[in-house]
Amino acid sequence: MKKLSLILLMMSFFLLSCDNVSDEIPMEDQVMVTGPLQVLKSGTLSNQSGAGTRGTAQLVKDQAGKYFISLSENFTTKFSTGTVTVYLSTSASLRLNESGSFQLLGLANMPGAHFYELQGNLDNKFTHVIIWCGAAAIPFGNAQLE
């Protein structure tokens, strides 16, 4: 009986920790970027979990003064899961159970360039871009923005 109670308690904790993650994933990036871009920070994506991830992630500012995270033209990863998501994170590993340590940017379900507009003020606590497989809950890659 104690084991069953412990298992139920652990399952409840796991489910509650997932509540911090929004059920709504922003749709594929459809944003307007104007004028020449100023690259503020950049990093090379490292491959994780055998996903074949490669490319560059950048923090850029457009002519209108809006901030974006961009993935380069040569960005690629394993797209067969259908839930490749892009996050900003305070570290190289995504900690979905720690609110404030990540910001969901949107989907990246095809290779090539992507732009994700950053809402609100630029927050320097986010140091990494994470490519995440939502279906398997594993990292596909990350880049430190420097």
Rank of each mutant, 00 (worst) to 15 (best):
A64Y: 10
L37G: 04
L88K: 09
L88Q: 10
E98R: 12
E73F: 13
V86K: 02
T90F: 10
L94I: 10
N97Y: 15
S17W: 04
G55Q: 05
V60I: 09
P36H: 15
M10L: 15
F75V: 02
Q63M: 09
A57Y: 02
S12I: 15
S80K: 14
T85D: 09
L45H: 11
T34L: 10
M11S: 14
V60H: 09
T34C: 00
L96E: 07
T83A: 03
T76F: 07
L96P: 00
V21G: 00
E28R: 10
T77Y: 04
E24A: 07
L40C: 01
N74A: 11
D23P: 08
Y87G: 03
T90M: 01
T53F: 06
S17H: 06
C18R: 02
L9Y: 15
K41L: 08
A57I: 07
L16N: 07
G43W: 11
M27K: 14
I69Y: 04
S80Q: 13
N74L: 08
K78N: 14
L16H: 09
S49K: 11
E24M: 04
S101T: 09
E73Q: 14
S93C: 00
L105R: 03
A108C: 05
I7H: 12
L15E: 09
K66G: 00
S80T: 14
V60F: 04
F79V: 03
L104V: 02
L107P: 00
V31Q: 15
S42H: 12
F13Y: 15
R95S: 12
S80V: 13
G100A: 02
S93F: 14
S70K: 08
L40P: 00
A108E: 04
A51T: 11
L104N: 01
S70D: 06
Q63A: 13
S42C: 04
V60W: 08
P26S: 06
M27H: 14
L107K: 13
G43V: 11
V86A: 02
N47A: 10
F13A: 14
I69L: 03
Q63F: 14
S42A: 11
